[in-house]
Amino acid sequence: MKAQDLLGKTADELKAELLQLKKEQFNLRFQKASGQLENTARQRQVRRDIARIKTVMSANAAS
């Protein structure tokens, strides 16, 4: 996910995307704990995507 893609989305779309990523992050944590996680790099991607969305949301709120 690119920050440029997020700039065109509305606040509601960003909130929905953030919620979906947080659910995925939760599931990835459980997979890791139970030893079922295959793609460990996905945890890093999800964490960074969450940060990107939060950054765009705060930038939108400031302007």
Rank of each mutant, 00 (worst) to 15 (best):
K2A: 03
Q4E: 14
Q4V: 09
Q4P: 04
D5Y: 01
D5C: 00
L6N: 05
L7G: 08
L7F: 08
L7H: 11
G8H: 04
K9A: 03
T10I: 02
A11T: 05
D12V: 09
E13Y: 01
E13V: 02
K15P: 05
A16H: 01
E17Y: 07
L18E: 01
L18I: 00
L19I: 14
L21Q: 06
K22M: 10
K23L: 13
Q25N: 11
F26Y: 14
F26S: 09
N27G: 04
L28S: 08
F30Q: 14
K32L: 14
A33V: 06
A33K: 12
G35H: 05
Q36T: 14
Q36R: 15
Q36N: 13
Q36I: 08
L37V: 00
L37H: 02
N39I: 07
N39Y: 09
N39G: 02
N39M: 06
T40P: 01
T40S: 01
A41F: 10
R44M: 13
R44C: 02
Q45P: 04
Q45K: 06
V46G: 05
V46E: 00
R47H: 05
R47V: 01
R48W: 11
R48I: 10
D49E: 15
I50L: 05
R52C: 00
R52M: 09
I53L: 09
K54V: 05
S58E: 15
A59Q: 15
N60G: 13
N60P: 02
N60I: 10
N60D: 14
N60T: 12
N60W: 03
A61C: 01
A61E: 15
A62Q: 14
A62K: 10
S63D: 11
S63H: 11
